[in-house]
Design a binder for these strands. Structure first.
Lengths: 202, 202
DNA sequence: GACTTAATCAACCAAGCGGTTGAAACTCGG
DNA sequence: CCGAGTTTCAACCGCTTGGTTGATTAAGTC
């Protein structure tokens, strides 16, 4: 998996560059799939956005579906950073919201996948870990004892992703654009505040 | 809107029946669109599920898109029942969750529409009313003063719809099937509990 | 019971789709 | 600087799609 460090001629300005092409396609595909969902996305659009010939999708990923799967399973690695057990829960949630706010494409992809129910969407191991994490918090009194940790986690994930999954409704509701960093910041703060309210008064 | 009560021969077993055909198509379309989303849905599948010729989609709704729009805008009327200002907030939320749990097709349709961002998804008037409703609750102390009513509403809507929008993740998280009535019941209770925790101790 | 109108259907069609093909263009070891 | 192998591309292809067409059948009218 190490970066194929061959003696590339000034690495940046070559005509042929598999690594770069792959990366361009993946990036473009994330944007397109994220925006329209799998079914509505046209391979032509992906190629155009990547500035690359459409055939290369087949060449590198074995077709549209292969490209999609590569992206759908890539989500796992990202999120794992969330499990930092040190900070207070409110901060963790806030960080989580900000993460989804940055990788919007990935996040939307995850939302599409969840709806269409084709892929596992998230690594099961990761989720198990997070639930365990919540259970610990609960024991230490940071989370009310009468809430089911896994359901609470579900609620918080849904809430964190709301500016993505319910973008339309969010816009109607607030009158602002849920895609801006300012909105993300404000929203993250509010969610943190809400979580703090859960753990008895702040 | 009254049921066109013409002297129909035993109303149920006739060969030609526009009203019934329309209704069959709408129902089938809601199921198909809800399950796969607009782009992935085939008009053939809708017709087949309705037990009707595919051409009738064009005949009655002017095509696939017309059928979709008819459904996408129909969501408004349903939800309006939520605004009953009498019961405690926790109960209102619970009722809302149960509503989405029943009309799963409609709910999923709403989720798809939100993601793809093509339709307004919900009547703006309705949303405004709900926010106002929350603001009132806040004044009466039922909701912490430092939470923005519209954002809190967004959070709760996202949470309520989580078993639909994050069905996949919900399944991984709990090990149960989020589509069952039992799950809905349990989940609704948990959300109500959570809301109660927000309004100071229960 | 003939006639008009509305409802339904099977067959057909053009457009758009993802994928394949075969050759050109680049890279690089020798 | 040459030849083998990799990477890229334009053109093409078969299939699926949503929609249309024109005929057929049921319902309502007088």
């Amino acid at each position: 998996m190490a970066v194929d460090q061959r003696r590339s001629p000034s690495s940046s300005e070559r005509k042929r560059d598999p690594e770069r092409t792959r990366a361009l396609l993946l990036e473009a595909a994330a944007a397109e799939f994220g925006a329209k969902g799998y079914a509505a996305t046209r391979t032509t659009d992906i190629a155009a956005r990547a500035g690359v010939n459409k055939q290369l999708i087949s060449y590198y990923f074995g077709g549209k579906e292969g490209l999609y799967k590569e992206l759908a399973t890539a989500w796992h690695t990202e999120g794992t950073t969330m499990a930092s057990t040190e900070q207070p829960l409110a901060e963790v949630i806030k960080a989580f919201v900000m993460t989804t706010a940055h990788n919007r494409d990935q996040g939307r992809l995850w939302a599409w996948a969840n709806l269409s129910g084709d892929t596992p969407t998230v690594d099961a191991e990761f989720l198990r870990g997070q639930v365990e994490f919540f259970r610990t918090r609960q024991k230490s009194g940071e989370i009310p004892a009468d809430l089911d940790p896994s359901l609470l986690l579900l609620v918080l994930m849904a809430a964190a992703a709301a500016p993505l999954t319910l973008e339309q409704t969010a816009r109607q509701l607030t009158g602002e654009d849920p895609a801006t960093p300012e909105f993300a910041e404000k929203y993250a703060d509010q969610l943190a505040l809400l979580v703090r309210h859960l753990s008895g008064r702040s």
